[in-house]
Design a protein around this nucleic acid. Structure first.
Length: 224
DNA sequence: TGCCAGGCCCTCTTTAGGGCCTT
């Protein structure tokens, strides 16, 4: 029997919009999701030696004084890298978090993990929930009446909210495409595929994903 | 508050432009 997949949902708080513009991470959280449940969480402030502008301080509640007492960014990234090792990743607007993830891991001297592929809940929400008023995390949480995880714009609260959104998406996919999935889970590979699929082609993409997954499974059995 | 950057989507498009989403 295949081992259940564990997906890591990550969220960064940062001092700016991108590493290229001088932004650095100030906090990270990772939430592990397996078989429809949250099974683990990691959260830490991190000191990257960066100054947080007042606007960001007000937005996140993370002050320069808090960062002065936080552990070094390299230590935190090594810990979260170990915590998520072997897990594919999910983030809300993954292009943002991917940039900081890759930059901060490189700064920390961590070896890239090939399992750390990203899927994005914004791209998925635009396809799965076109009726939602917005694809901002808070708007989607209200739209789906997800549990309140505390102050928004803190890494653990946002990562937990994104994790609950992921669970909702997986449940909706299983419900919506039950006939096509034939008992297969709404895996990270399926999510990554659907986030690039036109809204009108989702059903066909699910069927193609299942067909390829079955073929790969038969190939592995034949090799065994 | 709005801009900043980057990646992505949508359309009045594709030799482009505007909007969304993240801090």
């Amino acid at each position: 029997m295949a081992q259940a997949e564990t997906i890591a949902v990550i969220d960064f708080e940062t001092s700016g919009m991108s590493p290229a513009s001088g932004g650095r991470a100030t906090e990270i959280a990772a939430v592990l999701v397996r078989e429809g449940e949250i099974v683990g969480e990691y959260q830490s402030l991190m000191n990257a030696g960066v100054w947080v502008p007042p606007f960001i301080e007000q937005l996140t509640g993370i002050s320069n004084a808090m960062l002065a007492k936080a552990p070094p960014a390299a230590v935190v990234m090594a810990e979260v890298d170990a915590f998520t090792r072997g897990c594919p990743l999910i983030a809300h607007n993954a292009s943002f978090d991917r940039g900081f993830w890759q930059y901060e891991l490189a700064q920390a001297g961590c070896m890239p993990d090939p399992a750390h592929e990203f899927a994005c809940t914004v791209l998925l929400a635009r396809r799965l929930y076109p009726e939602a008023p917005s694809c901002k995390l808070g708007a989607l949480a209200r739209h789906h009446q997800l549990p309140d995880m505390g102050r928004a714009h803190r890494a653990l609260a946002d990562a937990k909210t994104t994790a609950h959104l992921l669970l909702r998406m997986q449940a909706d996919l299983l419900d919506r495409y039950r006939a096509e999935l034939l008992g297969l889970p709404a895996s990270h590979a399926l999510l990554a595929r659907l986030q690039r699929t036109a809204k009108t082609q989702l059903k066909r993409a699910v069927s193609e994903h299942v067909k390829q997954a079955r073929q790969a499974q038969q190939l592995r059995l034949a090799q065994f």
